[in-house]
């Protein structure tokens, strides 16, 4: 048995995103992955909270896949977080619905990796910008895995896109296994770093 994975995907202009269109193809190759495209499901932002809760309950690993705009996620995903992660259900007293599930972010940024550092134009690391998401996971009693990141999407060559797609394949293989130990991941900044170690679990 493999872990059941839910991909919550939010991109307001997917048709213009080369990298994301290629990455998404990875998901359809795995039976244990449910893919949920928020901008397709709710073009008018009218989130069906009941449906979303059901979906979350049925999966063990939740992936939030989105581009980074102005140091955060697209508004649709924020809307989703606002509405679905209800007090008393996802957090607060008795809010244990998501307890012990795992949250993983897959994000793309236009800026290159060095811009997300103290010396770079963005002055902070990407992990620092993602702290609100990490904390959201904590508050919902979920484990937060190191994010999978594609930097510098404006200048990706086709070969690089293929490389990232292969890395994502490795990631999926890795987290699909029931017995993967999240302690092994804790020391890493990005999920990509684990995959670079050559520890490729793709099936």
């Amino acid at each position: 048995m493999l872990n059941k994975i839910l991909v919550i995907f939010a991109h307001p202009l997917l048709e213009k995103s080369r990298i994301n269109r290629v990455l998404l193809r990875r998901y359809s190759k795995h039976e244990n992955i449910s893919f949920h495209d928020l901008y397709e499901a709710y073009p008018d932002f009218n989130v069906d909270v009941k449906f979303e809760k059901e979906l979350l309950l049925n999966h063990e690993i939740i992936i939030l896949h989105h581009p980074i705009y102005w140091y955060s996620c697209p508004p649709m995903l924020k809307q989703w977080i606002d509405l679905v992660l209800e007090a008393g259900w996802a957090h607060g007293p008795g809010g244990n619905a998501l307890k012990d599930k795992k949250l993983l972010q897959i994000v793309t940024t236009g800026g290159p990796k060095f811009s997300y550092s103290e010396e770079g134009s963005n002055r902070f690391t990407l992990r620092e910008y993602l702290l609100p998401f990490e904390q959201t996971a904590r508050l919902c009693k979920m484990a937060y895995l190191p994010p999978f990141v594609v930097h510098g999407t404006h200048r990706l060559s086709n070969a690089e896109i293929t490389e990232f797609s292969n890395q994502l394949g490795g990631l999926i293989g890795y987290i699909s296994l029931k017995d993967f130990d999240q302690e092994d991941l804790s020391g890493y900044h990005y999920f990509n770093d684990i995959l670079f170690k050559g520890d490729n679990h793709e099936q």
Partner: peptide
């Protein structure tokens, strides 16, 4: 409305 997360009355209630 099902958008109870934005409703501070409801949130206060849930959080006790």
């Amino acid at each position: 409305s099902t958008d109870i997360s934005w409703d501070s009355e409801r949130v206060k209630e849930e959080l006790g």
